[in-house]
Design a protein around this nucleic acid. Structure first.
Lengths: 209, 209
DNA sequence: AACTAATTTAAACAAATGTTTAATTTAATT
DNA sequence: AATTAAATTAAACATTTGTTTAAATTAGTT
């Protein structure tokens, strides 16, 4: 789908308000004001509030698995290297698209919008499939222990990152980082998180030697 | 706070509807109907919808850290044994109080209710403090590696469990467990999760030997 | 039985909700 | 310049929202 500037502005404002006030907590008037457009423009362009939500998810999740798919085909990398790139990619993605991932959690919990739910289910299936392949490949090459559940591994990665982000103020205080600006803090979190998750993965996936 | 039967019924119904429809998505009429009481009873007993939300959090979080505090004082256990009990306790708690923990995630993300936010912040602080002490103790006894961040460890535990629960339908399908009943499935998840998290913790906390 | 306090009710309140309308302005095409 | 299509607007629409009211009922006390 190709959106014009005004449509993109509405999508961004809606994503922002949905993520910090919730779907029902953010009114179309709120969204219109934030986007600087008339209320009627939302129905005009997207049909309804519900379809606006769907449009957010469709636009934000398109070409999401492509990067991982390309990575898996790369023959020059070891399974562990590939896995580390997957971690880098996911942590970075969640951090840079924080709002959308917050929205995603809510939608996964509530399951109010059928279209969104089905879109996310397809995405989860695809992701599990790709990670499963990577694990199987590593297993065959004696790089990973056998019998690792890709879903569990995925949940640890995503869960850790999201939980850290949901509690990032608490993390900031606990680690005495109050003086850091938002961008610096995000950078630090990204480094800490990728390191932590890679350690976790290596520890349970690799053979001790 | 001591609540009578009718108040408890309202609290339960509100928790249920808030967790599956969101705070703004669940109307006081919905809640009253679910609880089988007149709409006005909510204002009568709790003052307002907002204060009803606060009452849920206050009633569900009281005496939450006591168990962990008692555990830490127990001199007969090794730091690793204590940590494993903490994991058992948290996984079980989240699984048996799924609704409330869903609510908690939402509230942590939105931060709309100041009273709830402050209550949760105090809880996080206390939890980090307790886990930090346990890690320090294990460090001194040469059971754990030094320099582990308690917040990061906590986020991995809570994040993994919550993420698994948010995606439990997907987990069910991926592991071909569709025939299992809800209770059986929960039991299986509990076992899988505690095992997985304990493995993670041991792998990054203990010295290789 | 009489009285008081607590509970429960249906109805009403204003405010806010998502969506639509019909008129107007802007842009594009002929 | 005239015509058509697209974009934008303020106002109105019917519902739904959280809360309050004032009357009715129930329970507890004297």
């Amino acid at each position: 789908m190709n959106y014009n500037d005004k449509q993109l502005q509405i999508l961004n404002s809606a994503e922002k308000l949905f993520s910090c006030k919730g779907y029902d907590g953010a009114s179309v008037r709120d969204i219109a004001e934030e986007a600087g457009v008339n209320i009627a423009m939302i129905s005009y362009y997207f049909g309804s509030k519900e379809k606006l939500m769907q449009a957010i998810f469709e636009s934000r999740t398109s070409q999401l698995t492509e990067k991982i798919e390309g990575l898996l085909k790369n023959e020059g990398l070891t399974p562990l290297q590939k896995l580390e790139i997957v971690v880098d990619d996911y942590v970075d993605r969640i951090i840079s698209k924080e709002r959308f991932y917050k929205l995603m959690i809510c939608e996964q919990m509530m399951e109010k919008n059928t279209v969104v739910t089905e879109l996310l289910n397809a995405l989860k299936k695809k992701n599990t499939e790709l990670l499963g392949k990577l694990l199987k490949d590593g297993e065959q090459k004696k790089a990973f222990k056998p019998g690792i559940d890709p879903v569990m591994l995925f949940n640890t990665m995503i869960g850790t990152v999201l939980q850290t982000f949901i509690n990032k103020d608490h993390y900031k205080i606990q680690n005495h980082l109050e003086q850091l600006g938002e961008e610096e803090f995000k950078k630090l979190l990204l480094e800490k998180l990728t390191k932590h998750i890679k350690e976790l993965f290596k520890a349970i996936l690799q053979y001790e030697d």
